[in-house]
Design a protein around this nucleic acid. Structure first.
Lengths: 135, 135
DNA sequence: GACTAATTCTATACTAAGTCAAAAAGTGAA
DNA sequence: TTCACTTTTTGACTTAGTATAGAATTAGTC
């Protein structure tokens, strides 16, 4: 099995053209366990791994992957976007001091009453953020 | 009763020096029903009401009010902060098309099972955002 | 392999939201 | 009124993200 086979399949399945940059970024994102990462972090990581890619391309790629269902955007900080490789429905702890995110176990939190969407709108997603401070 | 009596009391109670700017912004914020507002919106509104105040002061004031417990910051958009005059525990609908926020009735949404805070941290707040798209 | 249409990337300028800091202005107590 | 302390102002600056023209790349056809 060649090194890029899995991410190649993944991009093709998602209907995305498998460019050099997309393949390399997909490898960083999807072959290192579940991750929560910002565009800046991913860009730095790519450069550190001698992947030549512009910051604009990192942003474009993250947004394309999100639109294609490979990533999910997480909004916990008014100053930047986080992207989550785990796209299943789940919620997050957010450590405000460090800017780190962690998944909350499914059984640890549940919403028992869902509100009805107001007239003329549909519910896209329900996000729960448990904000943490250092004890 | 003078026009600024209520907000004057409110600032004094909160331990904040009642400067001209703080009084005027407090009046806009707290005497128009529950509001969700960004710094830019408040600044525009203040200027429209011939309140001379700098944008830096609007930001400073919103942050001071939040720290003093008069406002609550709501993070639903990675590009800007919203401030909520209703500081009780409650959750929000966020209309992604328009950038508008609306409170969710208490009984309409319930969470069973609060997660335990991870080692070394405390839960500051639990935020639920129901993201809406146009139908 | 050559050609080519369409897509994507790059580099850099730009935007929007928010912050910084020195000087000026204002508050409140004595 | 004075004065110590706080707050505001102004305009420069920072940060995260976006725009865009030209270059580079992908992928299908022959």
């Amino acid at each position: 099995m060649r090194p890029y086979t899995q991410v190649l399949d993944r991009l093709r399945t998602a209907g995305l053209r498998p460019t050099r940059q997309r393949l390399a970024l997909a490898k960083l994102l999807f072959e290192n366990g579940d991750r929560h990462i910002t565009a800046e972090q991913l860009h730095t990581e790519a450069l550190g791994a001698t992947i030549r890619v512009s910051l604009a391309t990192v942003y474009n790629t993250l947004h394309q992957f999100t639109t294609a269902g490979l990533l999910r955007e997480i909004v916990v900080d008014a100053g930047r976007s986080y992207f989550d490789t785990n796209t299943t429905a789940h919620h997050h702890f957010f450590y405000e001091d460090s800017g780190c995110l962690a998944d909350i176990d499914d059984e640890a939190l549940a919403i028992t009453h869902m509100p009805i969407a107001p007239e003329g709108s549909v519910i896209k997603q329900v996000d729960v953020v448990v904000r943490l401070a250092r004890a």
